[in-house]
Amino acid sequence: MLEQGTTARRVAYAGSVQSDVGGIYGQAKADAATRLTGAANRVGAEFHDLRLPNLFGEHGRPFYNAVTATFCHLLARGERPRVDVDRGLRLLHAQDAADLLVGTFPSSDLETLVQELSVVELLERLTAMAATYSTGDIPDVAQKVDRDLFNTYRSYVTELRPAVPLVRHSDARGSFFEIARTHGGPGQSSFSTTKPGIVRGEHFHRRKIERFTVLSGRAVISLRRLFGTEVVHVEVDGEHPLAVDMPTLWAHNIQNVGDELLYTSFWTDDIFDPTRPDTIAEVV
């Protein structure tokens, strides 16, 4: 927001590729761009008309105007979407659109961020991801578009299945269980101890996939969707191992609610970069 008496130096407009197609919506977007161009020119501001394609992202509204949201909603509920008419799609992750609009990415990056898939190809990718994730495995997220599609899909799963049961194998030597099976892409594992009563976390991520697994002790993992008030609480302990995945755009924390030291394993697909930590403070 500009302070009173100041003039905008850059104006970014969330336009649409429909501006070139016609129709009431496309014509309205084109007319708005023309008016904004004139206003920006009058004050000497740099104007960017970002012709945004099909947007997708976490918590998109299904059965509205985004086929990705509809597919994810149905797949998360075990249903099998059907494609009646196939066509090409130009897809852009909503968070990339936001970065373009606020200037985090230059406007010239728009085309490099767009992914072209057919409707059938999109459904095939999401169906494969849903099948892999139904076992608790992490699908191949080596490509950016697959990571963004998987994070989008996960946003429809979290409230239905906030935790993944793990199989504990025990014998006279002790016990063993697998924490994460990944089918492609980078990954990083870490480990922490937490004293009784202490809370870790209180932040959210925009891009990274993160999995918490308590190895020993008792804890409560809490998650809250941004801009929402409802909190999901998952009780975890080392005797009954669960994997809890942190959905993107959800604030989360973990609290040691036991009397002993808490041991927790963390896995993320993101190799930590201190210059771009993708960790934004937010209290659950």
Rank of each mutant, 00 (worst) to 15 (best):
residue 93 H to S: 06
residue 75 L to S: 10
residue 107 S to I: 05
residue 96 D to V: 03
residue 150 F to S: 02
residue 165 P to F: 02
residue 172 A to N: 11
residue 89 L to N: 02
residue 187 G to I: 01
residue 172 A to G: 12
residue 154 R to M: 15
residue 101 L to N: 03
residue 72 C to K: 03
residue 90 R to F: 00
residue 107 S to G: 15
residue 75 L to M: 10
residue 98 A to N: 15
residue 135 T to N: 02
residue 99 D to Y: 12
residue 163 A to K: 05
residue 126 L to I: 01
residue 134 S to F: 04
residue 126 L to Y: 05
residue 139 P to V: 01
residue 112 T to G: 13
residue 149 L to S: 02
residue 148 D to I: 02
residue 91 L to M: 07
residue 151 N to W: 05
residue 148 D to F: 05
residue 177 F to W: 11
residue 135 T to Y: 01
residue 120 V to G: 13
residue 144 K to E: 13
residue 174 G to F: 09
residue 176 F to A: 06
residue 109 D to N: 13
residue 86 D to S: 07
residue 178 E to W: 01
residue 90 R to V: 00
residue 178 E to V: 03
residue 184 G to E: 06
residue 115 Q to P: 10
residue 175 S to P: 06
residue 147 R to L: 15
residue 112 T to Q: 13
residue 131 A to W: 12
residue 157 V to L: 07
residue 153 Y to M: 02
residue 178 E to T: 06
residue 155 S to L: 02
residue 134 S to T: 03
residue 119 V to L: 01
residue 87 R to F: 03
residue 151 N to M: 09
residue 149 L to H: 00
residue 83 V to Q: 04
residue 142 A to W: 08
residue 104 T to K: 14
residue 117 L to S: 09
residue 108 S to E: 15
residue 176 F to N: 04
residue 112 T to F: 07
residue 122 L to Y: 12
residue 111 E to T: 09
residue 73 H to W: 04
residue 67 V to K: 00
residue 88 G to W: 05
residue 73 H to N: 11
residue 131 A to V: 09
residue 70 T to S: 10
residue 153 Y to W: 06
residue 131 A to H: 14
residue 86 D to T: 09
residue 113 L to F: 04
residue 123 L to K: 07
residue 161 R to F: 13
residue 83 V to G: 05
residue 155 S to T: 08
residue 115 Q to E: 15
residue 123 L to T: 03
residue 104 T to H: 11
residue 90 R to D: 01
residue 87 R to K: 09
residue 85 V to W: 13
residue 121 E to Q: 08
residue 180 A to Y: 01
residue 87 R to Y: 04
residue 88 G to L: 01
residue 148 D to G: 08
residue 122 L to C: 07
residue 160 L to R: 15
residue 119 V to H: 00
residue 74 L to I: 02
residue 129 M to Q: 07
residue 149 L to N: 00
residue 161 R to P: 08
residue 173 R to T: 13
residue 81 P to F: 02
residue 95 Q to M: 11
residue 143 Q to L: 14
residue 145 V to A: 10
residue 117 L to A: 10
residue 76 A to S: 13
residue 134 S to M: 03
residue 67 V to I: 13
residue 173 R to K: 10
residue 132 T to N: 06
residue 148 D to M: 08
residue 78 G to I: 05
residue 97 A to D: 08
residue 98 A to T: 13
residue 142 A to I: 07
residue 144 K to A: 13
residue 84 D to P: 09
residue 162 P to K: 03
residue 148 D to K: 09
residue 137 D to G: 03
residue 107 S to V: 11
residue 128 A to P: 12
residue 132 T to P: 07
residue 172 A to H: 09
residue 185 G to E: 09
residue 181 R to F: 00
residue 130 A to T: 05
residue 165 P to G: 03
residue 126 L to A: 10
residue 98 A to Y: 08
residue 72 C to A: 12
residue 78 G to R: 08
residue 71 F to Y: 03
residue 133 Y to D: 05
residue 79 E to S: 12
residue 105 F to I: 08
residue 123 L to R: 06
residue 71 F to S: 03
residue 177 F to P: 06
residue 145 V to S: 14
residue 186 P to E: 11
residue 94 A to K: 15
residue 181 R to Y: 02
residue 68 T to E: 07
residue 139 P to H: 02
residue 176 F to H: 08
residue 83 V to F: 01
residue 68 T to K: 04
residue 139 P to W: 02
residue 159 E to P: 11
residue 101 L to P: 05
residue 183 H to K: 10
residue 100 L to S: 05
residue 179 I to N: 06
residue 129 M to N: 04
